[in-house]
């Protein structure tokens, strides 16, 4: 019996745009206080999931509970408890930082002393205190994202949903963003759920759900996912990859695949097998790469194609 309360509890969720299936039969639980990344290339269904969870779109089938409240029946209860940070800016560029926050506060009924106090806290913590009277159109991308975060956190939600939060940010601003999200999780036990198409970013999360073409293909801690690969990955470029794959598989008893014209397989001792492959097939190999298992390897392993491939891009939402 599962008695752990989930921050998000999704069961049998399917969503379609016309004939195209954006999310297929998704069941997923996200625990309170965890940093959860929804990873996948464009068009994998993660934005659809974000829009459903943030109550922007109606559920078509399946059941979704957010912080114990059911969608769509208890949408208002959900809205009160979640903070949402959109991929495209939701700031009014003609308004100042302070005005943007005050207008956001009005939507949640925060006013008077509570507003002043929360605004001050957030601006101080996000390093925006001296920008309060500046119009957001004059701020850099990184600062604007901080104002977005302040907007999303103004009503002190227990769950923060972010859609591609580091898009358009330079590396410094990205680090700041993650530091802030980690602080929210550690100090305020806020559940942070974010979508991303950046593999290295997802690695910072506590758990990752990998999506491909509307399906959940893997779900675990980043280290566990990488460990599931079964060792180092070896990628070989050579003539006639299909024959080469067969020859390598037969000779070394490994499960090799041809992906995008490259022969690829995993092995617990990459360095040793690399030398043996080179020795055996040096005349047929143009290049050979040894890599520690990465999330991309996990993605390839689960889907049989590379992270950025045609199938996903075509279906971009």
């Amino acid at each position: 019996m599962n008695t752990t309360p989930s921050a998000i509890d999704i069961r049998d969720l399917t969503h379609r745009y016309g004939l195209r299936v954006a999310l297929a039969d998704l069941t997923l639980q996200i625990e309170p206080g965890e940093m959860f990344a929804i990873l996948g290339p464009n068009g994998c269904g993660k934005t659809t999931l974000f829009r459903l969870l943030s109550t922007l779109m109606r559920l078509q089938s399946g059941s979704v509970y957010v912080l114990g409240k059911q969608l769509p029946q208890q949408s208002d209860e959900v809205r009160r408890r979640i903070g949402v940070v959109f991929q495209s800016p939701s700031l009014d560029r003609k308004l100042t930082v302070g005005e943007n926050l005050r207008f956001q506060a009005a939507l949640y009924g925060i006013r008077g002393r509570a507003l002043v106090q929360r605004q001050q806290e957030l601006l101080d913590h996000l390093g925006l205190a001296d920008r309060i009277h500046e119009r957001t159109e004059h701020l850099s991308g990184g600062l604007r994202r901080r104002v977005e975060l302040a907007k999303g956190m103004l009503h002190r939600p227990s769950l923060l949903l972010l859609d591609e939060p580091s898009t358009g940010l330079d590396p410094g601003a990205r680090t700041d963003l993650w530091r802030y999200l980690e602080w929210l999780r550690d100090e305020h036990q806020v559940t942070v759920v974010l979508t991303t198409h950046l593999l290295d970013e997802a690695e910072r999360a506590d758990r990752i759900a990998i999506f491909s073409q509307g399906r959940l293909v893997a779900l675990d801690h980043p280290e566990a996912l990488k460990a599931s690969i079964g060792g180092d990955s070896i990628t070989i470029r050579g003539q006639d990859p299909a024959t080469l794959r067969q020859a390598i598989a037969d000779r070394f008893q490994v499960t090799a695949k041809v992906i995008d014209g490259h022969v690829r397989f995993e092995h617990p001792d990459g360095a040793q097998i690399l030398a043996r492959v080179m020795e055996a097939f040096s005349d047929r190999i143009q290049s050979i790469t040894l890599g520690r298992p990465s999330l991309e390897d996990v993605f390839i392993d689960k889907t049989g194609h590379r992270f950025w491939s045609h199938g996903e891009d075509d279906a971009a939402t």
């Binding site: 019996m1 008695t3 309360p5 989930s6 509970y65 114990g68 409240k69 408890r81 009924g109 227990s158």
Partner: peptide, 22 residues
Amino acid sequence: MMQRPEDTIPDRGESHGWTTAC
């Protein structure tokens, strides 16, 4: 039997200061 999520999440609205906008 699976417990319904709504039964297990305590509502911490008060401590969070959630308010309703007019």
